[in-house]
Amino acid sequence: MMKAIKDFVGQFRASIALDKRLIVKKKNRYYLLSEKLKKQIQQDFFYAGVYLGKLKGSIFFPSFLLLTMMAEGKANKIVVDRKTAWLFICGRDIFKQGILEADGSRKGDYTLILNEHNECLGFGKILRNIRKEQDPNKVVVKNILDIGDFLRREKQQSRQR
């Protein structure tokens, strides 16, 4: 369990301290509890504490809370301008011209995407070396997950109702 999370976090050249004792699993989903929640929680819970993400097969799908925790420490991060941030939330990839700052830029790595307020909007995969890329119109980061996902989930849930 911890390995899946650690391996995922490692792909951002990041590390976060998670207390193994406080992590609980429900089906394929992982949650981080406080000591107080740990004392009160019962087996048949549906959601608890900080949702960390879910494991599907061997692939770990992070929660936005986990990405936010990662963004608080050292990790690959890209800060994008306002327009790019909005397009990213709408599911679009990131062009070189929309990047304001990049901390970690190696092709093939994962990177967190932050807006101008340093708030984490999701993550993507670096397709081209960001520092070396000269063409402003080239896609340099592929969108993997963005906070627009909350809206997509809402739509999906209202269709199921």
């Binding site: 406080s34 107080k36 929640l37 549906f46 959601y47 504490g49 809370l65 936010t68 849930q157």
Partner: peptide, 17 residues
């Protein structure tokens, strides 16, 4: 939808049953 709200709003102290 309840769980989505909790995740979106970065709530950390809640158990849902």
């Amino acid at each position: 939808p309840l769980s989505n709200q909790l995740e979106r709003s970065r709530v950390r102290n809640t158990i849902v049953y």
